[in-house]
């Protein structure tokens, strides 16, 4: 019985908590991608770098706060800086839209042209972020590191396995719940939110109904800026910030959005957790859990790791391919333009 509990604790500690936090980060990222896809009708390759930009602004403001002695006590200072990051990113995406995307929208260019254009934006943002903050890892988490530390847990329960619950993980989960609730309230209950859904559903009819496309697009960008910054900051607090890592997040984020069904917000969230849990469970060395759960003679001698963590992209990719093969519109019916 104690063995079972120990195994359960190990599982929670190494799989369930990290995967939930990572899944929440992916879900918020994928929500941004899916909103752009639903309203502006293209896959935004610059999304990873938008996240990096928002995180960078937040980090810079965090450093400034730290230097003048402002902090949030046990919570990371970055939370206080987050609104500045969102505002900065909002200005950035609105300017980008005016300077770049609007022209092609007016022209009614093919979506793939917009994708290529977003590649150009990706380059510029990537360069900009590296130019301002450099290519190195930046750790900007401060405040209390753990909600429950492994040692405290062991002392508290007397179990052999420890359970660590990082502040950043708790924060990620709480923030994700708030963000998702706000977003769904906005999309389903407010006039502007409903008009966005209408625009995404049937653009011509939305225009006929007197919905102002420029306003819908602007609101979309604002929401995307907020989502991208929140996702980026949470990921950065949980792991660390490096421009290249954020560029690479593009793959699991797109995989989440596609697996869930492009254009479907519910799908983006489901997709995020599917991808995160698969990545973590497949690259986790199960030996630690199995030594508790298996009878003595069957205890595994190897690490029982299905794939090394270096192949985590392969996991997102494999799931993506499987979903595309068997259910091309995703788990929740997305658009298939």
């Amino acid at each position: 019985m104690i063995d079972f509990l120990n195994g359960l604790v190990a599982l929670t500690n190494f799989v369930i908590i990290p995967a939930t936090a990572y899944g929440a980060q992916l879900a918020i990222g994928a929500l941004g991608v899916t909103l752009i896809y639903g309203i502006l009708r293209f896959s935004n390759f610059a999304h990873g770098d938008t996240m990096a930009f928002g995180t960078m602004i937040t980090i810079l403001v965090t450093w400034w706060f730290q230097s003048i002695g402002i902090n949030l006590g046990v919570l990371p200072t970055a939370l206080l800086a987050l609104p500045f990051g969102i505002a900065g990113t909002a200005v950035l995406v609105l300017l980008t839209d005016k300077a770049v995307y609007q022209f092609y929208r007016r022209q009614k260019a093919k979506p793939v042209i917009l994708v290529i254009v977003s590649m150009g934006v990706m380059f510029i943002l990537n360069g900009l972020v590296r130019f301002i903050i450099g290519v190195d890892d930046q750790n900007f988490a401060d405040g209390e590191r753990f909600i429950i530390g492994a040692r405290d847990f062991r002392e508290m329960t007397g179990l052999r396995e420890g359970l660590a619950f990082k502040t950043s993980q708790g924060l990620t989960i709480v923030t994700a719940v708030i963000v998702v609730a706000l977003l769904f309230w906005f999309l389903n209950k407010t006039r502007t939110g409903k008009s966005m859904r209408a625009f995404s559903d049937n653009e011509d009819l939305a225009l006929l109904s007197g919905i102002n496309p420029d306003r819908v697009v602007m609101v979309t960008w604002l929401i995307v800026a907020a989502l991208a910054t929140v996702a980026g900051v949470l990921y950065g607090l949980d792991k660390s910030f490096a421009p290249f890592t954020y560029f690479q997040l593009l793959l699991p984020i797109f995989a989440s959005a596609i697996v869930g069904g492009l254009g479907s917000p519910i799908g983006a969230i489901a997709g995020g957790f599917v991808i995160a849990f698969s990545e973590v469970t497949i690259t986790y060395a199960w030996k630690k859990v199995l030594v508790y759960w298996m009878p003595e003679p069957l205890e595994p001698s190897s690490l029982m790791q299905l794939l090394s963590t270096d192949y985590k992209f392969a996991v997102s990719f494999a799931i993506l391919v499987i979903v595309l093969l068997f259910k091309p519109t995703g788990l929740f019916k997305g658009k298939s333009v």
């Binding site: 006039r191 409903k194 008009s195 859904r197 209408a198 559903d201 049937n202 939305a206 109904s209 919905i211």
Partner: peptide, 12 residues
């Protein structure tokens, strides 16, 4: 608007 409810269609 196929993905919206009947009432939301009328609201739009």
């Amino acid at each position: 608007f196929t993905s919206m409810t009947v009432e939301e269609n009328l609201e739009m």
